[in-house]
C-alpha cells in the first residue's frame, strides 16, 4: 500500500515537472510561431521592436559571440593544455590557478557584467560596444572552457603518453598527433556548452554591449544581443510581448541546436572510450 503511494508520488512528480515545462515551452512556441517568418529574421526592427524583424540583433549576437570566441579559444585551450600536459599536478602555482578558476566558474554573470562595465567600457574606454560585450563574455566563458578542456585531456589514457615518451616522441608532437585528436569531441562539446551559455547570456551584456538595436557598423558600435532584446521588449516596451516571444523562440532554437550537438559529441566520445576498453 505504502509502496503504491510512493510509486504514485514519483509519477506525480514527473508529471508536474513535465507539465510545468510543457506549459513554458508550448507558450513560447504558440506565442512565438506566429511572429516567426523569413522577414522576421531579415528585417530591421520597427517601433522599438514591436514590429519588423530582428536581423541586426542576430548579427550583433553573432558578432559578440565571435569576438568572445576569438579571445577565449586560444586563451582557454592554451591554458587547459598547459594545466593538463605541461605541469606537475601538485605544484603550488597550479593549485592556486585551479582555485581561481573554480571560484570564477561560479561567479554570477551580473558580476562579470559589473567588471566589464567598469573595466572594458570605462577603464579601457571601449564604451558600450560589441568589443566590450565580447570581452566580458570571454571572461565568463574562460573558466568553464578551461575546466572542460582540461577534463577532456586528463581523461585520455596515460598509456599513450608513456608510449610516446618511450619512443622519444616530443610531448608537443604527441599532443597534436594523438592526444588532441582523441580528446577533440570532448573539447568541442565543452566549447559548444560554453557557447550555449554565452548565447543565453543577458546580465553580463546589458551594461557592456548595450541596447542599440541598429545594424552595427564596426565592433566599436553598440549592439543588442538577442537575449537583451527579449528583456527589453518584455520589460520596457508596452505591447512588445509578441515580438519578445518570437525572439525567444529563435533564441531557444539556437541554444537547443548548440546543446544538442554538444550532447551528441559527448556521447560519441563516451562510446569511443568504451570501445577502447573492450
Amino acid at each position: 500500500m505504502i509502496d503504491r503511494c510512493f510509486t504514485f508520488i514519483i509519477w506525480l512528480t514527473a508529471g508536474i515537472v513535465f507539465l510545468a515545462f510543457g506549459w513554458l515551452i508550448s507558450e513560447v512556441v504558440v506565442q512565438g510561431v506566429g511572429k516567426l517568418s523569413w522577414s522576421f529574421l531579415t528585417d530591421e526592427p520597427a517601433r522599438s521592436g514591436r514590429e519588423g524583424g530582428i536581423y541586426p540583433i542576430i548579427v550583433s549576437t553573432l558578432l559578440i559571440l565571435g569576438t568572445a570566441l576569438v579571445i577565449v579559444i586560444p586563451l582557454g585551450l592554451g591554458s587547459a593544455i598547459w594545466l593538463a600536459e605541461f605541469t606537475k599536478k601538485s605544484s603550488k602555482r597550479v593549485q592556486s590557478t585551479r582555485l581561481i578558476l573554480d571560484v570564477l566558474a561560479g561567479v554570477p554573470s551580473i558580476v562579470f557584467g559589473l567588471f566589464g562595465y567598469a573595466f572594458f567600457c570605462g577603464f579601457l574606454d571601449l564604451g558600450f560596444s560589441i568589443l566590450s560585450g565580447g570581452l566580458t563574455l570571454a571572461c565568463m566563458m574562460l573558466p568553464i572552457l578551461i575546466r572542460t578542456t582540461e577534463a577532456g585531456l586528463t581523461a585520455v589514457p596515460n598509456d599513450w603518453r608513456r608510449a610516446g615518451a618511450a619512443l622519444g616522441v616530443s610531448r608537443t608532437t604527441l599532443l597534436w598527433q594523438v592526444l588532441l585528436p582523441y580528446a577533440s569531441p570532448a573539447i568541442t562539446a565543452g566549447l559548444l556548452l560554453s557557447i550555449g551559455r554565452a548565447t543565453a547570456e543577458t546580465a553580463a551584456l546589458i551594461f557592456t554591449s548595450g541596447y542599440v538595436d541598429r545594424m552595427p557598423e564596426s565592433l566599436n558600435d553598440s549592439g543588442r544581443a538577442l537575449a537583451v532584446h527579449i528583456y527589453d521588449l518584455s520589460m520596457n516596451v508596452v505591447g512588445g510581448d509578441k515580438a519578445a516571444y518570437g525572439s525567444a523562440l529563435v533564441l531557444i532554437i539556437m541554444v537547443v541546436i548548440i546543446n544538442l550537438s554538444a550532447n551528441a559529441l559527448s556521447e560519441f566520445w563516451l562510446e569511443k572510450k568504451i570501445n577502447r576498453l573492450q
Partner: peptide, 27 residues
Amino acid sequence: RTLRTKIGMIFQKPNPFPLSIRKNLEL
C-alpha cells in the same frame, strides 16, 4: 629523446596509438 630511440620499451598493456596501423609506425 635520443637515448630512448636507442632503447625501445614494451609495456604490460598493449598501447598502440588510436591511429591507423601505418600511422602508428610512421609517427
